[in-house]
Computed example of a mutant assay.
Amino acid sequence: MARLVLWDIDHTLIDTRGVGRELSAAAFLRTTGQPMREQAKIDGITEPVIFRETAKLHELTTDRADFERFAQALTEEHLKRAAALRERGHALPGAAATLDALDAVGIQQTVVSGNIRPVAEIKLQVFGLDRLILWELGAYGEDDDTRAELVRLSLQRAHATAAEAVLIGDTPADVEGAHANGVRVIAVASGRSDEAALRDTGAEVVVSDLRDTELLVKLVRGDD
């Protein structure tokens, strides 16, 4: 039986409704001195890779120190505009209820996200979804470039085996990162990937959203 859920954040638990891109653009300008005319692919991608690839689109070469400055600026922009994030974004239907229901049956919950940890914490705090997350067990964008390594790190930090964990996410990258570590996946078609695309990636279960909390608890526990 699973005892640990690894949550993705964006388009799984919350939707920033474009505010996230605006905050990234502000941090990019502060870090590079150039306006962000376009952004690299973001779905399922970690923050260091998004920053590096976005910089390349602007004919810029960056290093780890540049990313760390960007990460600091991104955190500050999220803190400064938390009210806008709250007003324009929203928790996805069923997110809060599912977190509560899993906690009620003793399932530990953490985050495996391409976001850097401070931003992940702000995003969930803004929408009241942070109180049941065991942040120290998670893995975040600053930890590694790849989803698979983030899943591995989280399992290590939680002292959990692959069989004891379930990842819940909305992208093929979430599915692939979990499967690279032998972790079962519940894919949620609440992002840009539809149910067919998530099934094609190999997700064990695909749901349209998080509204059916009773079903989700059963799926996480592996009940027949």
Rank of each mutant, 00 (worst) to 15 (best):
A173T: 04
F67A: 05
D174H: 03
G18P: 05
D143L: 09
L216G: 10
K56E: 12
A148I: 13
A148E: 15
P48D: 12
T12R: 01
A158P: 10
I45W: 09
E68W: 06
A163R: 12
D194N: 13
A91M: 10
G20M: 04
T46C: 15
A165E: 03
F51P: 09
E176Y: 00
T61A: 12
P48L: 12
V205R: 12
Q125R: 14
I42L: 07
A101F: 01
D63E: 13
L129V: 13
T213S: 09
A40K: 02
P35A: 04
V5L: 11
G141V: 08
R147C: 05
G182E: 07
G177Y: 00
L60N: 04
Q109H: 13
M36G: 01
G114M: 12
P172S: 02
D66I: 09
A65Y: 02
T31P: 09
V217A: 03
R199W: 07
T62R: 13
K80L: 14
A95C: 10
E68S: 05
G20D: 00
V205M: 05
A165H: 00
H78G: 07
R69V: 14
F67P: 03
A160K: 08
L79P: 10
R21K: 14
R3W: 09
L60Y: 02
L132F: 06
L99S: 12
G202L: 07
T98C: 11
R37K: 11
G20I: 04
L57A: 04
T161F: 00
L219N: 01
A158T: 09
A148Q: 15
D66V: 01
S208E: 10
M36K: 02
S190A: 04
E136V: 02
A163D: 14
S208C: 06
W7D: 11
L85V: 08
E164T: 03
A173V: 04
D10A: 13
D103T: 10
E68Q: 10
T61L: 12
A203V: 00
R64D: 15
G18K: 06
L99Q: 10
V126H: 08
D170L: 03
A91T: 11
L23N: 02
L29F: 10
L102I: 02
D200A: 15
G89M: 06
E214C: 06
A104S: 15
V105R: 10
T54Y: 08
R211T: 12
Q39G: 04
D224E: 09
R81Q: 11
G202H: 11
I168L: 14
H90F: 07
L85N: 03
A25M: 05
K80I: 03
A83M: 05
L210W: 03
G20Q: 01
G169F: 00
A84K: 13
T62C: 12
E149Q: 14
D15K: 03
H179R: 14
V119C: 13
H179D: 07
G169T: 05
T213A: 14
A27V: 08
T12G: 08
I14K: 02
T61F: 01
T16K: 06
G94I: 00
A95V: 05
T46K: 05
